[in-house]
Amino acid sequence: MKRITNSEHTDRRGAAKDAKAALVEAFRAAKEAAEPTREAKQAERRMIAEAREQRRAEREQAKLEEQNRVAAEAAARDAAVAAAARAEIDARELADKTRIERVLQDDAARKAERDRRYANRKARQA
């Protein structure tokens, strides 16, 4: 059989108010019951965040060390290239100097030979 109720507006407002109060009380009870696990979870999350931060710092440190190593290798390569270029320039200058000396010696030898021939010719004529 159907139940017929004549709920007035105030009755419905009162029932809604009681229902809301019951929900708030249930929420508070659940919150208090979950307090120990919430603190444990927060501590666990804090530890995880600290470990994550430590790993990030280690990665950044490793990346910085790698960049420094690469920069040092590049500097060493540049120094080696500069030294090789300087050695090549020095060798080229030395070769130029020896060639000039050789040309001067050859020229002096030719002049000495020419002077000797000239002296022999004059000696024969005299």
Results as ranks from 00 to 15, higher is better:
110 R>V: 06
75 A>R: 13
74 A>F: 02
20 K>I: 08
74 A>P: 00
76 A>N: 02
60 E>H: 10
9 H>N: 04
63 K>M: 08
69 R>M: 06
13 R>A: 14
58 E>Y: 02
17 K>F: 10
39 E>A: 04
7 S>H: 10
71 A>K: 14
122 K>I: 12
86 R>C: 01
86 R>I: 01
122 K>A: 10
1 M>Y: 12
69 R>L: 04
18 D>Q: 12
86 R>H: 08
53 E>K: 09
105 Q>Y: 12
56 R>I: 10
88 E>G: 03
13 R>C: 14
31 K>Y: 03
106 D>E: 15
43 A>C: 02
105 Q>S: 06
79 A>N: 07
54 Q>C: 05
98 T>Q: 15
89 I>T: 13
96 D>T: 03
61 Q>T: 08
105 Q>D: 13
3 R>L: 15
107 D>N: 07
79 A>L: 07
79 A>Y: 04
37 T>F: 05
108 A>R: 12
21 A>M: 06
32 E>L: 10
47 M>W: 10
90 D>R: 11
98 T>P: 00
10 T>H: 13
106 D>T: 11
88 E>N: 09
32 E>D: 07
41 K>Y: 11
15 A>Y: 06
51 A>G: 01
53 E>M: 11
80 A>V: 02
40 A>P: 00
79 A>W: 07
79 A>I: 02
11 D>F: 10
12 R>W: 04
111 K>C: 03
96 D>S: 09
71 A>F: 01
86 R>T: 05
62 A>S: 07
120 N>V: 08
52 R>F: 09
123 A>Y: 10
59 R>V: 06
115 D>S: 05
24 V>C: 02
119 A>S: 09
63 K>S: 13
91 A>Q: 12
81 V>F: 08
21 A>V: 02
58 E>H: 02
113 E>K: 13
1 M>A: 14
19 A>R: 14
37 T>V: 14
94 L>S: 12
50 E>I: 06
50 E>R: 10
67 Q>M: 08
61 Q>V: 03
110 R>M: 13
108 A>W: 09
47 M>V: 11
111 K>T: 04
89 I>F: 09
78 D>F: 04
81 V>Y: 12
108 A>S: 09
86 R>K: 13
38 R>Y: 07
25 E>R: 13
82 A>E: 12
